[in-house]
Deep mutational scan, measured.
Amino acid sequence: CHSECLGNCSQPDDPTKCVACRNFYLDGRCVETCPPPYYHFQDWRCVNFSFCQDLHHKCKNSRRQGCHQYVIHNNKCIPECPSGYTMNSSNLLCTPCLGPCPKVCHLLEGEKTIDSVTSAQELRGCTVINGSLIINIRGGNNLAAELEANLGLIEEISGYLKIRRSYALVSLSFFRKLRLIRGETLEIGNYSFYALDNQNLRQLWDWSKHNLTITQGKLFFHYNPKLCLSEIHKMEEVSGTKGRQERNDIALKTNGDQASCENELLKFSYIRTSFDKILLRWEPYWPPDFRDLLGFMLFYKEAPYQNVTEFDGQDACGSNSWTVVDIDPPLRSNDPKSQNHPGWLMRGLKPWTQYAIFVKTLVTFSDERRTYGAKSDIIYVQTDATNPSVPLDPISVSNSSSQIILKWKPPSDPNGNITHYLVFWERQAEDSELFELDYCLKGLKLPSRTWSPPFESEDSQKHNQSEYEDSAGECCSCPKTDSQILKELEESSFRKTFEDYLHNVVFVPRKT
């Protein structure tokens, strides 16, 4: 048989008469490798580009789960590009990614509803959504962080984005990388972005840091009482949809009607710091009717980097990364020049730590249904340095008659930039024990000054392991946590139920 035959053949030295091919099969003959313009397919066939392209389009058009959109890589027609490569849609070739590779997620039936953290986790790592997304989240724990972890990498949506009755959302900033909504599939009414009845939605994105392009379709905003109209108009300008909307697409009466839409800028007039305090004062603000001013709200939190936005980490279910302080308005003076500047002394802060701070007014709604208010920009203030805590785990070892090696770990709280350490030492008198000992005694162990690591005695271990207080009263049991108490109650309830079950099964009433 021919060298490319495997198993047997019907005619000697003829690659077209093989029972099976050793390498690849091409047009009725066995070959060692697939010549151009053919590609290896499933490690035994040679196919042309049209064959591989037909497989790709067949799966793409069917949208069946589990099928493969075949691509070409290293002269092979394979189910998908290997790690580190992405497909070129024009020629199906796998090309190296520039940075992290995109991950295209194809949605069944063309859309997916995100109504819980669990459903959001199914899209973790996706960068391109081939379909439409509907966000409908009523509640949950730590929602802002969970949504950002699972949806934060999405850069492109081919269909539309719909935010509907998501009472738990305060902001859409968890879509931190969303840059493009194509609108290839539109919501009824030709809408590519749809926001309806979101009672706590206050911000779409921080438009000073976020760009969003909507290729096709219109915007729809109705019944978002805490979303200011200025935020919607800003989205029109940034996304390129200005002029597409009709009169009733953006409701003037049901958007922002319960919001404090600040239209003035508060400026800080005085800032002073110490290692654990920050004193702030800002310019006074009074609405047209000074009785509408209820006070100020001061927001602050630790910020290692200057990239904080107002609604980071917030949701309507209680999660809030900001510390909020309510401040009463100052006494009002008739003389504008003698107006008191409101302020606040922030206490209990960490030394040498940068804080993000902003302040906003708290006002009631005027009778004319106009909203007044003022808010400052987010500023960054760093507390002063102070003395560091003591170095940890000092170790001293003498390696000769004239040297001592000293080692330690950095302090747990540096409280500033540590530039150097101060080492103090003092000579001590020799131990009298060394002169009084009889060095001729056998088995004498000389006193040693070398360091030995501390260890816990058996008594201390027994005390720590004991669940009861000892007789001397030195140790006591740790208080039980809520989960331990709940577990004990469940076990007790189970024992009672099981005992009742045994009584009912074992003891049967005697027939009379």
Rank of each mutant, 00 (worst) to 15 (best):
I379P: 00
I154G: 00
F358G: 15
C317G: 08
N141W: 10
I134D: 13
Q339P: 09
T323I: 08
F220W: 08
I278V: 14
I154Y: 01
I405T: 06
I181T: 01
S269K: 07
R347Q: 09
N141G: 11
K242C: 15
N399S: 12
T254H: 15
D326H: 01
R370G: 14
V325M: 07
R202P: 01
Y223L: 14
R247Q: 10
I114T: 01
G140S: 14
L229G: 04
T361W: 03
K407H: 03
L294N: 12
Y372S: 08
E262G: 07
I379G: 02
T371N: 09
T273F: 06
N248S: 10
P336H: 06
L265Q: 12
S400K: 15
N340M: 03
S166Q: 14
E122P: 06
F299D: 00
D312Y: 06
L186G: 10
H106W: 03
E236L: 07
E237Q: 12
S260L: 11
E283H: 07
L153C: 13
Y160I: 01
L172D: 00
N211C: 11
L196Q: 15
A168K: 02
S376T: 09
G125D: 09
M346G: 04
A251F: 09
A374L: 05
L172N: 01
E264V: 03
K242P: 05
L153M: 12
I379L: 08
T254G: 14
Y191W: 04
P336A: 00
L252A: 12
Y380P: 00
L298Q: 00
Q216N: 03
S396Y: 08
N263V: 05
E109T: 15
E148S: 06
K375Y: 07
G152M: 05
L265G: 07
Y160A: 15
R369T: 07
D384C: 07
I378M: 03
L293G: 05
T118A: 03
N211P: 08
L108F: 10
T215Q: 09
I214Y: 02
L298D: 00
I379V: 12
E231C: 14
I188A: 11
L161H: 00
R165I: 14
S376R: 00
K177S: 09
T371K: 06
L204Q: 01
C317W: 15
L180A: 10
S132R: 02
K277N: 15
V397L: 06
L252F: 14
E237P: 01
M346N: 01
Q121S: 06
P394Y: 08
R291P: 08
F175T: 01
L147M: 14
V117T: 06
L279Q: 06
S402P: 02
G313P: 07
F299M: 10
D335L: 05
N307G: 02
V324K: 01
N387T: 06
K234H: 13
S319N: 13
F221G: 03
L293N: 08
L294R: 03
V170R: 05
V238L: 11
E146S: 04
K177E: 15
L227I: 10
W207D: 05
N142S: 10
E264F: 07
R370V: 09
L133H: 00
S158I: 13
P342C: 07
S401T: 10
P391L: 07
D367A: 04
Y380R: 04
N255G: 03
N190C: 02
S333M: 08
G140H: 13
K350G: 03
A144W: 04
A374G: 12
T386A: 11
G240V: 01
D197M: 06
D367V: 15
S260N: 02
D326P: 06
T215I: 13
N320Y: 09
M297A: 04
A385H: 10
S274M: 13
L212Q: 05
D377R: 11
R247I: 13
P391T: 06
D328K: 02
L212K: 01
P394G: 06
S319R: 12
Y300F: 04
D312G: 10
I154C: 03
S173K: 13
G125P: 01
T254D: 04
E368P: 03
T118I: 06
W205I: 02
G159K: 01
G159A: 02
T361K: 01
Q121Y: 01
N248G: 09
D377V: 10
D393E: 06
A385E: 10
A168S: 01
M297C: 11
N150G: 04
I129S: 01
D289F: 09
T113K: 12
S338W: 07
S398K: 01
E236W: 15
C261T: 03
F299V: 06
F268D: 00
G183L: 01
K226V: 15
V117C: 04
T118F: 13
T383G: 00
S260H: 07
Q306L: 10
E236S: 08
L331F: 05
D249S: 03
I188R: 14
L345I: 10
V170K: 05
N198V: 03
I250A: 06
L180H: 08
P391E: 03
I181G: 00
C317E: 14
I327R: 02
I404Y: 01
T273A: 06
S192F: 00
N263E: 15
Q245S: 10
E368Y: 11
R272F: 15
S116R: 01
L161Q: 00
D257P: 03
V363A: 11
P330R: 09
K234E: 14
G295R: 02
R369H: 06
F358D: 02
Q339N: 15
Q403P: 00
N399W: 10
D115I: 03
D315R: 15
S321G: 09
T383A: 03
S376L: 00
Y300Q: 02
R347V: 12
D206P: 09
F296C: 02
H233Q: 09
N307T: 07
E302L: 08
F275R: 15
I163K: 02
T118H: 12
T241M: 14
F268H: 00
E237N: 13
F175R: 00
K407S: 09
T371A: 10
R165S: 15
D326L: 14
K162E: 06
T185D: 05
K234C: 14
A144Y: 04
C126E: 00
Q258P: 07
K409R: 09
R347S: 07
V104M: 06
W207G: 03
S321I: 09
D393Q: 09
N136F: 08
S338H: 08
N150P: 05
L219G: 04
L280Y: 00
A251G: 08
D249K: 15
T361L: 04
E264H: 11
A303D: 09
D312F: 14
A144F: 15
Y194V: 13
G243Q: 09
D292G: 04
C105E: 00
E262P: 10
L161F: 04
S269P: 01
S333Q: 12
A120L: 07
K226R: 10
D257I: 05
L227G: 00
